[in-house]
Nucleic acid binder design. Structure first.
Lengths: 335, 335
DNA sequence: AACGTTCGTGCGAACGTTCGCCTACATAGT
DNA sequence: ACTATGTAGGCGAACGTTCGCACGAACGTT
C-alpha cells in the first residue's frame, strides 16, 4: 500500500506538502509540482480513504435498509432503487451501506449503532409508515436522513415520495374516460399511509366526475394474490345493479388475483370488466391480457433521495427537501 | 461522540487501559474493571469504527456489484441474495459495499480503486462468465474474493454456484417420467458459461434415458420473451414426426414466451405440450397454467459466498473454497 | 535480606491523513 | 541598509484506536 510518505521521499519533499499539493491547498513551484505529480503517477498512489475519513470525522457512507419482501412478492424495485442510489452517491463521493432490516421497535438500535460507531453519515429510509420510530429518533439525534415515503403529516422532515394519489387518479380517470361508472377498489388496511394516499386519488377522481362510491366497492386487506381473489370474488358477486365494471387495485399481485377470478367466472378482462394494477411488476406485461398498471419513477426517486441527503450531509442550504414524483399509467389490454 | 479518553477520565484510568479491558487484552483488579465498565455504560461509549479500521488496516467491508438488468427482466434474485449476504456479513462483523457495475473491460478499475483506497477487504463477484477479467486481476493482486458462478474450468479460485446442470437434469428427467420423449430446449448462446452448464444437464438426461437429441430441437438465443416466442414458434412448426412434446427453457421469461405461442396455436400447455422454466420468478406461480420451473437456492448461495469470503479475509484455513448447490424443480401445471 | 516472578497499570508510538503555523528566502518599498 | 510583504515548503499536532514495553508494588523464593 502506497502512502504519502513514500511519494514524498520519491519527490524529495515532505509528505505534508504532497498532501497539500494534491488537495490544491498550496501553490508550489512548477518544478516541484511536476516532481510530485510524477511521483504520484509512478507509484500509483491512491489516498487511503480510512485515514481520510478518520481525519475528516466522517465515513462518506449512507445507510440503507429495506424490508425483505416475502418470497412470493416481487421486489423488482430494489434493483432499480439501489442502482440509482449507488450511482448518485458515487458521483458525490459517497457509498451505500445496506444493513438488515429488523421489524419491531427495537430496530432503531441498528441505526443508533451505525451512527455511534460513526460508520455512516446519513440514512435513506424506506417502508416508512405512520409513527415510524426511526423518524423521531433521527430527528432528535440530528442525523441527516431522507425518507422514501411519507409518514405522519404533522412531522416535517426531508422525504421523497411517489404521488400515489395521482397514480390512482390517473387510473380512475382513464377508466371513466373509457365509459366506466361503477369502479371498485381493492385496497389495503387503513393503517397504511401509502394505501390511504392512493385511495385519496380514487375518491378524488370519482368525486370530480360526479360519481358515487359505495362502501361495498371498497375492499381492504393484504396486498396478496389470495386477497385479490377473495375481494374480486365478493365484488363480482354483488347484485347486478351496483356491480362494478372496473376494479382498481393497489398492487399488481392483487390485480392478478382479481384477473384470475374474473376469468374463471367467464368474464373477458378488458372487455367485460376492466382491471388496473399498481407497480408495473416486470411480468405484468406478459399476463394475458397484459395488465394496465401504474408505474412508479423508482430510479428518479433513488436519485432524488441521495441528492437531498448529500446536500444535507454537506450542510448546504437544504433547498427543496421534499419531493413528490408523478407516477405514470401504463395502458395495456386489461383496462 | 464519546471517545476512549472520556471514558478513561470518568473511570480514573488511562485510556489505553480502557481499550485493553474492553478487548480483554489484560486483567485488571475487580474494582477498576467495575469502574471502567460503569463508565462505559454510563457514557454509552461505542468504539469508533473508522479509527479501529485505520489501526487494523482493514475496512471490514465487502465489495459487491451486480449487472443492472433491463427493466423488463426480473431481478427478484437481488433482494434474496443481498439480504442473505448482508445478514451473514453482519454476523461476522462485516458490511457490504455495493457499487455500480460498469460493463466492458475497463471496469476492473472500480475494483482496483476500492482496493487501493482500502475501502474494501474483499469482493463477491456475480455475473461472471468465461475469461472474466476480474478473476485474473483479483488473483494477481491476491485480494480475497468469492465468485457467485464459475468461469474457465482451468482457473482455480473460490466460488459458489448453483448446479445448473442438475437443474436441467431434474427438469428433463421429470418430463421423461411423464412420458415425454421428444424434448426440445430453448437455450442461450454458447458463449454463456451458465447456459452451457445447464445444457449439459439436458444432454446428460437425454442420453441416460437413451433418447436422441436433434440439432433442430436446440434453439439458442437471448433470454428474452421475444426469443422465447420465436424459438417456440419454430419448434412447434417442425414436421409432425420430430415435433417436440416438451420444451425446457433456461429462464422463466423465455418460458412465458413459449407458453404464449403454444396457447396461441391452440395447444393446452401441460396437456398437449409441456413447458418448463428456470428461476422461479415470483409471478411464475400465477401464470395460467402455473409454470413448472427450477428454483435456485439463492439465499444459501449468498450465505455461502460470504462465509467463504470471511474465512479467506481472516486467513483461516480455507476449508472448502468451492461450493455447488443443488437447485430444486418446482412442479406446477405447465409440465 | 536480596532476588526473581507475577500482577496491575501507564506511557509512547503508530496507522495515514489534513491543517495551522512557522521559517527561510526573495523581492520590493522607504 | 532596514523593514514590510509575499512565497515555497517544512514541522508538529491531531483524529481515536491498539499494541508493545516499561515500571512499581506485592509476593514468594533462596
Amino acid at each position: 500500500m502506497i502512502t504519502l510518505k513514500q511519494v514524498a521521499t520519491k519527490a524529495g519533499v515532505s509528505y505534508q506538502t504532497v498532501s497539500k499539493v494534491l488537495n490544491r491547498k498550496i501553490q508550489v513551484s512548477e518544478e516541484t509540482e511536476k516532481r510530485i505529480m510524477d511521483a504520484v503517477r509512478d507509484s500509483g498512489y491512491r489516498p487511503n480513504q480510512i485515514a481520510r475519513n478518520m481525519r475528516a470525522k466522517r465515513s462518506l457512507m449512507i445507510g440503507y435498509s429495506w424490508v425483505q419482501t416475502s418470497p412470493d412478492q416481487v421486489n423488482h424495485i430494489l434493483d432499480l432503487f439501489l442502482t440509482s442510489m449507488v450511482r448518485e452517491a458515487e458521483a458525490a463521493g459517497y457509498h451505500l451501506l445496506p444493513f438488515p432490516f429488523r421489524a419491531g421497535q427495537a430496530h432503531v438500535d441498528d441505526y443508533r449503532e451505525l451512527i455511534d460507531t460513526s460508520r455512516v453519515d446519513g440514512f435513506v429510509l424506506s417502508s416508512v409508515n405512520y409513527n415510524d420510530p426511526r423518524i423521531n429518533f433521527l430527528l432528535e439525534r440530528r442525523v441527516p436522513f431522507v425518507s422514501f415515503g411519507r409518514s405522519n403529516p404533522e412531522l416535517d422532515f426531508p422525504y421523497v415520495d411517489v404521488d400515489g394519489a395521482d397514480g390512482l387518479l390517473q387510473a380512475v380517470e382513464h377508466l371513466i374516460a373509457n365509459g366506466h361508472r361503477r369502479i371498485a377498489a381493492i385496497a389495503w388496511p387503513d393503517n397504511s399511509r401509502v394505501g390511504n394516499e392512493r385511495m385519496r386519488g380514487y375518491f378524488q377522481a370519482m368525486q370530480s366526475a360526479g360519481l358515487k362510491t359505495h362502501p361495498e366497492w371498497i375492499e381492504r386487506g393484504e396486498g396478496t394474490y389470495e386477497f385479490g381473489r377473495e375481494a374480486a370474488f365478493r365484488l363480482l358477486e354483488l347484485p347486478e345493479a351496483n356491480h362494478p365494471t372496473a376494479i382498481v387495485t393497489l398492487n399488481d399481485t392483487q390485480a392478478i388475483g382479481a384477473l384470475h377470478v374474473a376469468r374463471e367466472r367467464g368474464l373477458e378482462v378488458g372487455r367485460d370488466v376492466a382491471i388496473v394494477g399498481f407497480d408495473d411488476a416486470p411480468m405484468s406485461q406478459y399476463l394475458q391480457p397484459a395488465l394496465t398498471t401504474v408505474r412508479q419513477p423508482i430510479s428518479e426517486a433513488g436519485h432524488k433521495c441521495v441528492e437531498i441527503l448529500v446536500s444535507l450531509m454537506e450542510r448546504n442550504p437544504p433547498q427543496d427537501h421534499q419531493a413528490l414524483l408523478k407516477p405514470r399509467l401504463i395502458v395495456r389490454a386489461s383496462g
